[in-house]
Each structure stands twice: as structure tokens, then as C-alpha cells.
């Protein structure tokens, strides 16, 4: 039963710890060695505030990814939620807490729309979510003639800028969404079905369980995270801009893929967070090293695709090792 320890250790390193952790450690050593500002408390706190939006989105995307889908709409949905949020507060004098609920509802609505496109209409997830992206961008631009909505109530700035028990509220939001996601994935039937959807959707359908329901719910959850992220973003900027979230879907997608793998049925909440942190640190590190913005995107894209390829190769190696073990 006990194979040699070296092999077990290797398997543990490759399998149990998300690959991104190792890249993360190397990257942190490199950035902190080349610039002393990197490992400071101020930078870490700043990173948390900036990163809350991305990490929350990553946690939603990872759920969709586990079911085997690709979510490309959440950046645009987040912009739209922000616009609606600001609209109801400014034009309808709605109190902030009601507006926040409405923002989350809009997020859930568009997430559910994705889910319906994918399940009932049978559209591949990346096309469905690209379509939703177009719909959300169009609505966000059209609803206020492409203009920014400003003049939000003073109270609203609390969410993005204040502390609660000495911890920034965005960080609380990350923690809450993280706990929610882990509990949903690990302790509820929803989680079981989400993993089953990614593992073997046909088997799940044959078992007579409403597979479509859980798939729709997975997309709705991702929409909900977009709604939550919109509240933080809008509060930080104290304005809603119709295209603010464009491009965010790529970072969230990359974070989710790096934290687990692109392979369906795999991934954890922790992996999503780690993948998101990877993206944040990469972006922050490039800034601190003083690399001009126009070069950053190219480096960013290349690093990401390299990381995806690497984690794929590792994943395949793990799979091979597992198969060999089964044969033994």
C-alpha cells in the first residue's frame, strides 16, 4: 500500500498544492529582491483594497469553471451593476443598502441569463457569455448616454474606503465571499453537483438530478459576485463608469484558470483566491519595477499564457502519475 515516500511527496506537491503557489513564491522573491517597496505593509494594504474586486470576481468564475464553463461576461456585468447602483441612488434617491441589493439582483439576473443561454439554449459558454457581455455593455452605455454617473451620497463611500475593526471593508468582503464560496462548494449539495457537472455531466443527468438547475445556479453565483464587486468599485471611485469593468473578465478568467486548471471538475475557492493574488502581484510588481503601461499588457499576456501552458503540462503529468498508480 505504501509506495515510496519520494513519489508520494512529489504527488502531494504537484497535486494538492495549486501550481500557482510555486510561481507566486518565485515571483514574490523576485519582486522583493529587485525593489524594497514591494514587501511593505503599505503596499500589501494597497494591494488588498485594489484587489478586492478581482478576487471576488475570481471566486465567482472558479465556480463556473468547475462546472466546465468559461465566464467572459462578468467585467461588463459589473460595469452595468455599478451603473444601475448609481442610477437608483442618484435618480431615485434610494438608500444605499437598497441600491446594493438591487446591484446584486442585477448581477444575479445576468448570471442567470448566462445559465439559461448555456443550459436551455445549448450555446457554448464562451459564446453565451460573450453575448451577455455585449448586452451588458450596450445597456451600461445606453442607459446614461455613455456618461459617467457621479454625485453619489456621501455615506456610500464607506464601503470602499473605511475600516471595520481595523480591517478595510473590501477585505471583509473578500473574506465573506471566500467563506461563502468554500461552504457552497464543500458543504452543500450545490457543491457536490457543481463538481459532478464538471466531472461527468452525462452521469449526473442520467442519475435523474436536475443538472440544469445547478448549472444555472453556478452562473447566477458568478453574477452575484459581479454585483458585489460593483458595489466596492463604485464606492471606491464614488462614480459609475459604463466601461470600467472591461478587461476585468480576462484577469478573473486567468486567475481562476491559474488557481486550478482549465480542466472541468477541478478547482477550489482557495485556488481561485491564489490565482487572483498571482494576477494582482504580477500587476503590482510590474508597476513597482517601473515598466511603462503600454509594455505591461504584452508582458501580462505572455506570462499568463505561459503559466496556463505550464499548469496544463503539470496537470497532465499528475494525471499520468495517477493512471500509473491505478495500473499498479
Amino acid at each position: 500500500m505504501k509506495a515510496n515516500n519520494g513519489k508520494q511527496l512529489r504527488q502531494f506537491i504537484l497535486e494538492k498544492v495549486p501550481t500557482v503557489t510555486w510561481i507566486l513564491i518565485v515571483m514574490m522573491i523576485y519582486f522583493s529582491a529587485s525593489n524594497s517597496n514591494f514587501l511593505t505593509f503599505a503596499n500589501a494594504a494597497n494591494l488588498c483594497r485594489q484587489g478586492a474586486i478581482l478576487l471576488i470576481l475570481c471566486l465567482g468564475v472558479i465556480v463556473v469553471k468547475i462546472t466546465g464553463g468559461i465566464e467572459l461576461s462578468n467585467g461588463a456585468v459589473m460595469s452595468l451593476c455599478g451603473m444601475v447602483l448609481a442610477w437608483v441612488m442618484v435618480n431615485m434617491n434610494m438608500p444605499p443598502y437598497l441600491a446594493i441589493i438591487i446591484s446584486m439582483l442585477v448581477g444575479i439576473l445576468f448570471g442567470t441569463l448566462n445559465g439559461i443561454f448555456v443550459t436551455f439554449m445549448g450555446i457554448p459558454s464562451f459564446v453565451a457569455t460573450l453575448g451577455t457581455q455585449g448586452i451588458a455593455v450596450g445597456l451600461a452605455l445606453g442607459m446614461n448616454n455613455g456618461n459617467v454617473i457621479g454625485g453619489l451620497p456621501e455615506k456610500f463611500s464607506i464601503i470602499g474606503n473605511d475600516n471595520f475593526l481595523n480591517i478595510p471593508i473590501p477585505l471583509w468582503a473578500i473574506i465573506l465571499v471566500f467563506i461563502l464560496t468554500s461552504v457552497l462548494l464543500n458543504k452543500t449539495p450545490f457543491g457536490v453537483y457543481v463538481y459532478a457537472l464538471g466531472g461527468n455531466e452525462e452521469a449526473l443527468k442520467l442519475s435523474g438530478k436536475p443538472a440544469w438547475l445547478y448549472k444555472v445556479l453556478a452562473y447566477s453565483y458568478s453574477g452575484l459576485t459581479a454585483g458585489i464587486a460593483a458595489c466596492i468599485l463604485t464606492s471606491r471611485n464614488m462614480a459609475a463608469q459604463p466601461t470600467v469593468g472591461l478587461g476585468m473578465e480576462f484577469e478573473a478568467f486567468a486567475g481562476a484558470v491559474l488557481g486550478g486548471s482549465y480542466i472541468a471538475g477541478k478547482g477550489t475557492a482557495m485556488g481561485g483566491v491564489l490565482g487572483g493574488i498571482f494576477i494582482l502581484i504580477l500587476r503590482n510588481g510590474l508597476n513597482i519595477l517601473g515598466i511603462p503601461t503600454y509594455l505591461q499588457l504584452a508582458i501580462f499576456g505572455t506570462v499568463l499564457i505561459t503559466a496556463i501552458v505550464l499548469s496544463t503540462l503539470v496537470e497532465r503529468r499528475v494525471q499520468k502519475m495517477r493512471d500509473e498508480e491505478r495500473e499498479e
Binding site: L72, P124, F250, Q296, L297, G301, I305, V309, T312
Partner: peptide, 23 residues
């Protein structure tokens, strides 16, 4: 060769291409 799904591979290349254009 790497056997990535076409959506994942080309989506990654989307951002490489965009980055190159910026650069």
C-alpha cells in the same frame, strides 16, 4: 500540440495580441 481548448488558447492570445499592439 499543448492541446488547450481552442477557446482558452485563443482567449489567451487575444491578450497577447492586444498587449503587442500596445507595446
Amino acid at each position: 500540440i499543448v492541446k488547450l481548448p481552442s477557446a482558452v488558447a485563443s482567449y489567451g492570445m487575444l491578450w497577447v495580441g492586444r498587449g503587442l499592439a500596445f507595446a
